[in-house]
Amino acid sequence: MSNASTKTSGGFPNPLQWIGVGILATCQELGRLAIFASRVKFAALTPRWFVGAILRQMVSIGFYSLPVVGLSAIFIGAALALNIYSGGSRFGAEQFVPTIVVLGITRELGVVITGLMLAGRVSAGIAAEVGAMRVTEQIDALKTLSANPFRYLYAPRFLAAMVTLPILVLIADIIGVMGGWLVSTQALDFDSTVYLRNTLDFVTIEDVAVGLIKAVVFGGVIAIMGCYHGANSKAGATGVGRAATLSMVSAAVLVLGLNYVMSTLFESIGL
């Protein structure tokens, strides 16, 4: 009865069995996710494209994210300037505020903050929408009407996120630097002209490019997490709520993890 190789509920529970079940379930989930992601990518890269759906998603993902991205960026830029100033003043290095602000914003913070905010706003939003469509049989209806949900639903979101995220990050970079400039000139006695000249002299096209490349990857991750969890949503309000939570958490963790991986990669190739 207590044979560990059988899944009977009788006998003493075997902790090794739980570990095995957990690992197998994780592998299955990762496999499903990988298949799903490659189907989304295939649908995104091959015709036919639903141009109207892509444009609608670009407005919903990109344009309507502007307020939250702009607000986050200005506060991060301002706080960064304050901290660099107070840290730098301990060894007379206050003049580095503009250069470190622009470097920190363009290479890391602008893209990470944008990625995290969109993991919440966009990924959870997609998961809730797709999840509600699944539980009300709208995705089955799409299929019976010969519309492939990968082409009609997921690929437009994937493409729209990959296109709009770099634009949002570029805007976040500019507003973030402006936040630092605002604090430095208004509260910290920096000269406006000198601050801006230092910023522009120091920042390189590579610094900005690093952030934008990350943004394209984050856009894809955010959209796929939303679509995947939505498409696998369980029935009912709790099912859809759980899909939204899972997509937000997984997208946020992946954004931070991939950011580190890509930073290491760029560092090693000298970008």
Partner: peptide
């Protein structure tokens, strides 16, 4: 798709988009 073009389906909840 060729098969589905010849089939109609009315869902329980109507499943309108």
């Amino acid at each position: 798709d060729a098969m589905r073009a010849r089939i109609g389906m009315l869902f329980q909840s109507a499943a309108l988009f």
